[in-house]
């Protein structure tokens, strides 16, 4: 694999010894192997038919059957897998979009307006950052069962549009990147507060918004406990829950193993695409969160 070289900026100073360069590259090579081999294995395994999977070398291709395997997966039980993928895209895509909008609005208000109870509000939200999603799964189940709404789309969707971490990030970012003068200028020009937010502030806060969106997207996509505890109806499953159920049936239904593997590969592709295409944004956004 050809490594893309980035221009080395910090080149003034003594040159590093060959020994430490070699040592550093060795560490990088070993880690690359560790991090990429499982994904490589998954990709190779997904291209094999059932016989080759058990007999051929696990890390290299036999007959290339990727397309057939995807076809079989699509045919298996009326393509329920693709329904799960669609569900995940809906839960994660729409959920993260709404979560980003609300968190950005909240963070912007906390950064740019002074109102009574502002700090208390922010501290409560910060406390929310320390409450992990898994810890809330059972309590959420109790709430939804009170109103008889478990096993519905909303029981998984609604809780995932709240992102306290997003508010935290948005507040920090708004404080440092939306100048008061600009908001004031818009005000003098006769722009309403809400309009100023949507036309001026959101443009300046784009890196933070992309970061919030991506991390909320991953959080929802990876969420497992909440759907596990909420959903009984297979048609509502996100892809993680569906594959988990299939994986636990492998010992009874051996042919399902091939579907688990091809499904696992397909389920990670959307996230990899999202991260690769948006990395310019999320790295700068994450930096802001980490410094403070």
């Amino acid at each position: 694999m050809s490594a893309t070289t980035t221009p080395v900026k910090k080149h003034n100073g003594p040159r590093e010894s060959l020994f430490s360069r070699a040592g550093a590259m060795l560490v990088m090579a070993i880690c690359t192997f560790y991090f990429l081999v499982p994904i490589w294995w998954l990709f190779v395994a997904a291209t094999k038919d059932r016989a080759d999977f058990t007999t051929s070398a696990p890390l290299w291709f036999a007959d290339f059957n990727l397309i057939e395997n995807i076809g079989n997966l699509a045919a298996y039980r009326d393509g329920v897998f693709f329904r799960w993928m669609l569900n995940s895209v809906l839960y994660a895509g729409a959920g993260a979009a709404i979560a980003t909008l609300f968190a950005t609005m909240m963070g912007y208000a906390l950064a740019k307006y002074s109102f009574r109870g502002r700090e208390t509000l922010f501290n409560v939200v910060l406390g929310g950052v320390l409450v992990p999603a898994t810890a809330l799964a059972l309590p959420l189940f109790l709430v939804f069962s009170q109103v008889g709404a478990t096993n519905t789309f909303w029981s998984v969707f609604l809780p995932s549009i709240v992102s306290p971490f997003g508010v935290y990030l948005a507040r920090i970012y708004a404080t440092s990147s939306v100048p008061d003068e600009l908001v004031e200028a818009a005000r003098i020009d006769g722009s309403g507060e809400v309009r100023t937010f949507f036309t001026v502030a959101t443009r300046l806060m784009t890196p933070a918004m992309v970061t919030i969106f991506l991390f909320q997207f991953v959080t929802i996509w990876n969420n497992f406990f909440l759907p596990l505890i909420m959903l009984r109806d297979e048609k509502l499953f996100p892809v993680t829950l569906g594959l988990y159920i299939w994986n636990s049936q492998v010992s009874q239904i051996p042919e399902i193993r091939a579907y688990v593997i091809i499904g696992a590969l397909l389920s990670i592709i959307p996230l990899i695409i999202a991260f690769l295409s948006l990395q310019r944004f999320w790295r700068s956004g994450l930096g802001t969160g980490a410094i403070k």
């Binding site: 991090f35 990429l36 994904i39 991953v218 996509w221 990876n222 696992a264 990670i268 996230l271 991260f275």
Partner: peptide, 11 residues
């Protein structure tokens, strides 16, 4: 190094 983060815990 970051790629595995795109893999959900279950997967």
């Amino acid at each position: 190094f970051f790629a595995p983060y795109a893999v959900p815990g279950v997967i």
